[in-house]
Amino acid sequence: MRKHKAVVIAFLFIMMIVLLGLNYIWDDSYLWFSFGLIILALVLFLFKFESRKVEPRELVLLAVLASIAAVGRIPFASLPSVQPTTFVIMMSGYVFGAESGFVIGAVAALASNMIMGQGPWTPWQMVAWGLVGMTAGLLKNTFFMNRRWGQITFGVIWGYLFGWIMNLWGFLALIQSGGSQTWRAFIVYMIGSATFDTFHAISNVFFLVVFGAIWIKILTRFKRKYGLLE
């Protein structure tokens, strides 16, 4: 059974990679690919809970957390790469698990871009933020993530990883438009976003230091009191 689940999960992630590739080829169909990613993320979430019925209140909780993460981008729109979205997704994945974290991250990206602006970058943001939540969930029971310094380090790492994933999309788009395809051009392109990635990492650290403990306490209380996503 465990092997069967691993195969299905691997297949879903391969499909996500395929959708990202198709988004690169047909960038005018990004919205369809975005909804495709959402469907795959929901399938991944529901597959995790195949042994029991997923309650509507659990789905509502995921939607609320995704909405909070999405709305959190708006007040900070004028500050490049500074927002609490990554923090909310990270905390959600840490408390409720990898699958829930991925769904919240993917939905938050799509929902926030309804206001911030949709584009070929949307599926890439969905995957990047989904991976933030997923990795936070996968590491939640480790010595590393159960320490404040570990959570801060995690936030710093994803401040840069998120930017690098988006840089990959940007560089592929540049190549598609006839830009240079050399490794030197790629490295220069990556270095060019270092300032914005640093802002992202610093904002993650700020929100973790100031709000991290209280968010974990509140979300854990909801989880235990109402038996959500156990």
Rank of each mutant, 00 (worst) to 15 (best):
Met1Phe: 11
Lys5Tyr: 13
Ala6Val: 15
Val7Asn: 06
Val8Ile: 14
Val8His: 07
Val8Leu: 13
Phe11Thr: 11
Leu12Gly: 09
Leu12Trp: 07
Leu12Tyr: 12
Gly21Gln: 06
Tyr24Trp: 14
Tyr24Lys: 13
Ile25Ala: 11
Trp26Val: 11
Asp28Ile: 10
Asp28Gly: 03
Asp28His: 10
Tyr30Thr: 01
Leu31Gln: 04
Ser34Thr: 02
Gly36Tyr: 00
Ile38Trp: 13
Leu40Thr: 03
Val43Ile: 15
Val43Asp: 01
Phe45Ile: 01
Phe47Ala: 11
Phe47Tyr: 15
Phe47Leu: 14
Glu50Lys: 12
Ser51Glu: 15
Arg52His: 11
Lys53Met: 13
Val54Cys: 05
Arg57Val: 13
Glu58Leu: 11
Leu59Arg: 06
Leu59Thr: 09
Val60Ser: 10
Leu61Cys: 09
Leu61Val: 11
Leu62Gln: 03
Ala63Met: 12
Val64Cys: 05
Leu65Asp: 04
Ala66Ile: 02
Ala66Phe: 05
Ala70Leu: 08
Val71Phe: 14
Val71Arg: 00
Val71Met: 11
Val71Ala: 13
Gly72Arg: 04
Gly72Thr: 07
Pro75Gly: 12
Pro75Tyr: 12
Ser78Met: 13
Pro80Phe: 03
Val82Tyr: 02
Thr85Asn: 10
Phe87Gln: 08
Phe87Gly: 09
Val88Gln: 07
Met90Thr: 07
Tyr94Ile: 06
Gly97Cys: 10
Glu99Ser: 15
Gly101Asn: 08
Val103His: 01
Gly105Ala: 01
Ala106Cys: 06
Ala108Thr: 02
Ala109Arg: 02
Leu110Asn: 02
Ala111Glu: 02
Ser112Pro: 01
Asn113Tyr: 02
Met114Ala: 13
Met114Gly: 15
Ile115Trp: 10
Met116Gly: 09
Gly117Thr: 04
Pro120Trp: 00
Trp124Val: 00
Gln125Ser: 05
Val127Gln: 01
Val127Glu: 03
Val132Phe: 02
Met134Phe: 14
Ala136Tyr: 01
Gly137Cys: 09
Lys140Ser: 13
Lys140Asn: 14
Thr142Pro: 15
Met145Gly: 10
Met145Asp: 12
Asn146Leu: 12
Arg147Ile: 01
Arg147Thr: 14
Trp149His: 10
Trp149Lys: 12
Gly150Cys: 10
Thr153Tyr: 02
Thr153Asn: 08
Thr153Leu: 15
Trp158Ala: 09
Gly159Phe: 01
Gly159Gln: 05
Tyr160Ala: 00
Gly163Pro: 04
Leu168His: 07
Trp169Glu: 15
Gly170Val: 11
Phe171Arg: 09
Leu172His: 05
Leu172Cys: 06
Ala173Phe: 14
Ala173Thr: 01
Leu174Thr: 14
Ile175Lys: 12
Ile175Asn: 06
Gln176Asn: 15
Gly179Lys: 02
Ser180Tyr: 05
Gln181Lys: 12
Arg184Gln: 14
Ala185Asn: 07
Met190Trp: 06
Ile191Leu: 12
Ile191Tyr: 12
Gly192Met: 05
Ala194Gly: 05
Thr195Pro: 00
Phe196Arg: 02
Asp197Tyr: 07
Val205Trp: 02
Phe206Asn: 02
Phe207Gln: 10
Phe211Tyr: 13
Gly212Glu: 01
Ala213Arg: 15
Ala213Ile: 13
Ile214Met: 12
Trp215Lys: 00
Ile216Ala: 10
Lys217Gly: 04
Lys217Ala: 13
Leu219His: 09
Leu219Gly: 06
Thr220Cys: 06
Phe222His: 10
Phe222Tyr: 15
Arg224Glu: 15
Leu228Gln: 05
